[in-house]
Structures are given as structure tokens and as C-alpha cells.
Design a binder for these strands. Structure first.
Length: 479
DNA sequence: TTCTATT
């Protein structure tokens, strides 16, 4: 039975010779009696490269010629309703799907599209990722055929694509999809690192392709690097503007917040009633909070916290992940299902804020655990912005700050460690741009040491912070 | 040196 081995049809589909396109109504007549029912072994097809102005009714005629359609649905973005340029199609008859694939897949380009239509079994019918390889360090002259020949000995290849830029030039990498995971694995074993292509900077790379999730994370990291993680214009979105779209795609949320002004809000304070909700949530499904963050009983989350939260959602996932060993999803959702169908509530948002803080705190060594609670309850005022120096041993030099970082962001990053009496990012006079270094002063050396311990080497985007004691004034030359 | 999308 197909249902017990869902992948089998994929093989049979792939090896059926392409017939002449079916046009006549006789195709339909074979299954006129199926009504809304579909065959037990029907195949759900993925349809790609559809112009975004075409809806189901526009697509129907194209596909009906291969048989009675059981279901056809254009994919839309869950929240924006935007046409995604692809669809799912299930025919009543399995046979119709095979005919449609053979007749249409890569055979015809719909108006306005630059690539031919895709008609193939949906991923849901058979997981595609665990047999798909990424091939890197190819010679840019190598074609699909060259790559195919290289991989052919290891199994049946379903798909072979060389990645190309807009100009059609190879990017020196490719995707190769085998019919099974083990074939793919054997290709890795035999080919990875086995040779160096002429003109390539290192030996051939053959590995399983990134999953969607990995791609998302990769993109985030890239964007984070471009934007600078602590973007000062970003604050925690308000309850009302914090879209469920962002809720759904939490890993992208922060990046989106940076890039889409519509999701932003300048600031946010939390009514005390909602703080209790956080407390309840904290007791419920989260690891014990080592900082007693909630029991600080602050009447409102300090503004420093709201600013901390947004950056937390941005790019520290790797660190946080390592710090407590929980999967990302668990961290971000507090153990709730990642895809809530409801719009986010205040509690949802708070949860995220809270988990964000937890992630932040999770990296702190146990010996430095006191300061955050302090900063919550004492809520140091943003005062004394003229460079007040602390006593010796209380002043830090910070280098490799994000370009966007101003005095305030600098202060907020160091508030968790104690009373920040001043923070200063140095600016280039001519360009008014940050020079990416600055100074922070605490009122006691313990806070300064805690900050060094926790923040020196802290990764932000591609850079790592350098945090050390400021040299005394009279020491040789200023940096 | 990671793609045009997969409810």
C-alpha cells in the first residue's frame, strides 16, 4: 500500500517516460464518477512558478485537461493573504497527476514568469530534504550535466540544479536530489573532499542541503550582520502592533522588526497586572529562573528591559541555545505550540519578552547573577550623560560595537551588571558616525568585572565585543 | 558555496 510507503510513488513518477500532452476529454471520462472522492493513492502535486495574479479559477482550465480535480488551492501567506506563487493540486485520479506532471513540469512557462512551471509531488507526500545534497566548490563552468555525471554512480537522481546568478553564471554550487537518503549518504562519503575542481578555492563540498529552518537562520545571521543587532530604532513591538505573523515566525520577527517600520513602536511599558502573568508563566513550564527576575516586583518593566528584549530576539539564539540546551522553539514559545492560531495576547508578548531576558541572562556566569535583579528593582535613571568616570577599576573600554550603537544602547547593554553612571560611544566628528568603541562607567569595580566576564567576547552579528578595563588616564597614549 | 515557492 502506498500509504505505508509514501515514497514509492515518487520513484515510479520519476521514471515514467514523458507522453504526448493529453488534450482530449477522454482523459476525464475515465474518472467521471469520482465526484468529490479521490483515489486512495492520489498524489498531491505542488505547482510552482505561477504568476501571482492567477487564482484557482484561472488555473483550473490548465489542469482540468488531465483529469477531474479534487482540490486546487493557491498558497497564500497566512497573515498577509499574499499569493505565494505556488499551489497544491490533487486530482481525483492518481493517473491524472502523473499525466499532468509529465505534460507540464518544466514544459511551459506561464506569462510573466521567467522559469517554467513546476508540477511535482508535494513535499508532504514524501520528505524531500533528507535526500537532497548541497554541492559546493564546483567549477563555475560545470553544467547540470557535468554534476549529474559526477553523482550518477551513487544512485537515482531526481533533480540536479546548478545555482546561477541573474546573469546565468554558475555560482559554483548545485543541488542534487537522490531518490533515497542512503544514496545521498553514499555520494557524500565518496565525493565530499574527494577532489578539487579547477579554479575552486578548496575541495569539493558534498553535504545535505540546509533545511528551511537552517536557511532562515542563515538569512537572519546575514541580515543581523548587515544591520547590526542592537539597532537603536528597535523597541519591543506593542501588543497591538505586534503581529501574529511575527509571532508565528519568531526567528524572523526581530529581523522583520528592523526592516519593516510598520512593526515598530517607540517604547512600551508594562502594566503591573501583566507582570503577574509573567510570574505565573515563569512558574509554568520554564526552567527555574536563577535570577528571580520576576520577584523583583518592579511595578513596571524598566525601559532598559524593553530595549534589551528586542535585541534578544535578534541574534543571540546560538548562545542562548548552548547555554541551556533547549531547542530554540522551546525557548521562544515557552513550551507553547509555535504556531498559535490566535492572535497574540499581551501574555504572549510578555512571554517572549521574558524568555528573551532569560536567554540574555542564561549566558551570565553564575557568579555574576545578582545585577539584573538589581537593575530591575532599582531602575537606574538615565542621568549623568556627561562622561562621569567611576573610581579606578570601574570604567570599561568597549570595542567592536555595532555601528548603530549610541550611548543609550551601550548603557542598556551594561545595565544588567550594575549601576551605570555613564556611557559614551565615540563618534567621528566629520561623518557623525560611531567609531564603534566607547566607555561605560559603573559605581563599583564588582559590576565592572561582572560585565567583563559576561560581555567580553560576546558575539553580535559577525563581531565580538571587546570589553576590558579602561586604561587609567595617565597611561601612555589614549587608545 | 544554500535555491522560486511546500498548506
Amino acid at each position: 500500500r502506498l500509504s505505508s510507503s509514501p515514497c514509492r510513488f515518487h520513484l515510479s513518477l520519476a521514471h515514467i517516460p514523458v507522453p504526448k500532452p493529453m488534450n482530449g476529454p477522454e482523459t476525464v471520462s475515465m474518472h467521471t464518477d469520482c465526484g468529490a472522492m479521490k483515489d486512495q493513492d492520489a498524489i498531491k502535486l505542488f505547482i510552482g512558478q505561477i504568476p501571482r495574479n492567477l487564482e484557482e479559477k484561472d488555473l483550473k482550465p490548465l489542469f482540468e485537461q488531465f483529469g477531474k480535480i479534487h482540490e486546487l488551492s493557491v498558497l497564500k501567506d497566512r497573515y498577509t493573504g499574499m499569493h505565494k506563487g505556488c499551489a497544491f493540486l490533487t486530482y481525483c485520479a492518481r493517473d491524472s497527476a502523473i499525466k499532468a506532471q509529465n505534460a507540464l513540469h518544466e514544459q511551459k512557462t506561464l506569462p510573466g514568469m521567467t522559469r517554467p512551471i513546476q508540477v511535482k509531488p508535494a513535499d508532504s507526500e514524501c520528505r524531500g530534504e533528507d535526500r537532497k545534497l548541497f554541492v559546493g566548490m564546483l567549477n563555475k563552468q560545470q553544467t547540470e550535466e557535468d554534476v549529474y555525471r559526477l553523482f550518477e554512480p551513487y544512485g537515482a537522481i531526481d533533480e540536479c540544479t546548478v545555482l546561477r546568478g541573474p546573469d546565468g553564471n554558475s555560482k559554483g554550487c548545485a543541488f542534487v536530489k537522490f531518490s533515497t537518503h542512503s544514496e545521498a549518504q553514499s555520494a557524500i562519503s565518496s565525493l565530499h573532499g574527494s577532489q578539487t575542481m579547477p579554479g575552486a578555492s578548496s575541495s569539493l563540498v558534498v553535504k545535505f542541503a540546509d533545511t528551511d529552518k537552517e536557511r532562515t537562520i542563515r538569512r537572519m545571521q546575514q541580515m543581523a550582520g548587515q544591520f547590526g543587532i542592537f539597532n537603536p530604532s528597535v523597541a519591543l513591538p506593542t501588543f497591538s502592533s505586534y503581529s501574529s505573523y511575527a509571532h508565528q515566525q519568531q526567528q524572523q520577527a526581530a529581523v522583520m522588526a528592523v526592516s519593516q517600520g510598520g512593526y515598530l513602536a517607540p517604547s512600551l511599558s508594562f502594566p503591573s497586572a501583566q507582570i503577574h502573568q509573567v510570574g505565573a508563566l515563569a512558574m509554568n513550564g520554564l526552567p527555574p529562573n536563577p535570577l528571580n527576575l520576576v520577584s523583583g516586583q518592579s511595578p513596571a518593566l524598566p525601559s532598559s528591559l524593553t530595549s534589551l528584549v528586542a535585541p534578544m530576539m535578534n541574534g543571540y539564539t546560538g548562545l542562548a541555545h548552548q547555554a541551556n540546551g533547549h531547542p530554540l522553539e522551546t525557548l521562544y514559545t515557552n513550551g507553547l505550540p509555535p504556531y498559535s492560531t490566535q492572535s497574540p495576547t499581551a501574555a504572549d508578548t510578555l512571554q517572549q519578552a521574558f524568555t528573551g531576558v532569560q536567554q540574555y541572562t542564561a549566558i551570565y556566569p553564575a557568579t555574576t547573577l545578582t545585577p539584573l535583579g538589581q537593575s530591575l528593582s532599582q531602575h537606574p535613571q538615565v542621568i549623568g550623560q556627561q562622561q562621569r568616570e567611576g573610581p579606578e577599576g570601574c570604567n570599561l573600554f568597549i570595542y567592536h560595537l555595532p555601528q548603530e550603537f549610541g550611548d543609550n544602547e551601550l548603557m542598556q547593554m551594561f545595565l544588567p551588571f550594575g549601576n551605570v553612571i555613564s556611557s559614551k560611544v565615540f563618534m567621528d566628528r566629520a561623518t557623525n558616525q560611531s567609531k564603534c568603541f566607547g566607555f561605560v562607567s559603573f559605581d563599583n569595580p564588582g559590576s565592572a568585572q561582572a560585565a567583563i566576564q559576561a560581555m567580553n567576547g560576546f558575539q553580535i552579528g559577525m563581531k565580538r565585543l571587546k570589553v576590558q578595563l579602561k586604561r587609567p588616564k595617565d597611561a601612555s597614549r589614549p587608545y
